[in-house]
Design a protein around this nucleic acid. Sequence first.
DNA 1: AATTAAAGTAAAGTAAACTTGACATTAAGT
DNA 2: ACTTAATGTCAAGTTTACTTTACTTTAATT
Lengths: 75, 75
Amino acid sequence: MVVINGSLSNRINVLRAERNMTQKDLAEKIGVSRQTIISIEKGKYTPSLTLGFEIANAFELEITDVFQYKKMKEE
Amino acid sequence: MVVINGSLSNRINVLRAERNMTQKDLAEKIGVSRQTIISIEKGKYTPSLTLGFEIANAFELEITDVFQYKKMKEE
DNA sequence: AATTAAAGTAAAGTAAACTTGACATTAAGT
DNA sequence: ACTTAATGTCAAGTTTACTTTACTTTAATT
């Protein structure tokens, strides 16, 4: 059974922009490095679930308002 | 600044029970090892966001119906 | 044109997620 | 009492998230 992972996208970019928040601001608010924000924002890797919740909290949104997951086929 | 992480809990246990699903069933459905399910179910470590979504999908629930995150103080 | 803030890239290291395999325990069925 | 399915534990290994540092680029400001 080959499982093709679903794809994860996020709206951190626009959510920051709406709030005039820099990557540094967000990183410091959450307590992670700026690199981590950059990498997640650009989809370089997927965050842990707790970090996902933290980011949503920082924007005062639900986690599903920040991250979208689209399941793909498995065969 | 010391950040005390929020705590993550989950209802995988009861959701499986409601559906007569074994850990093995769930693991195979999602495409991870049984160890991974055990460890997440017992809170030994926190899953990735994508795995969180996959687990919620397996139960046909929202991610927040499976995982609860409680933020704690930072000082 | 020089300065500065914000965003991006890259690389090396550490911590944590996830796998694999082997074995122990508990509860249910025969 | 034996078997079997389900859960659990432990340990060692691989992969990936996350950190740190240092440097580049872009856009805005003076």
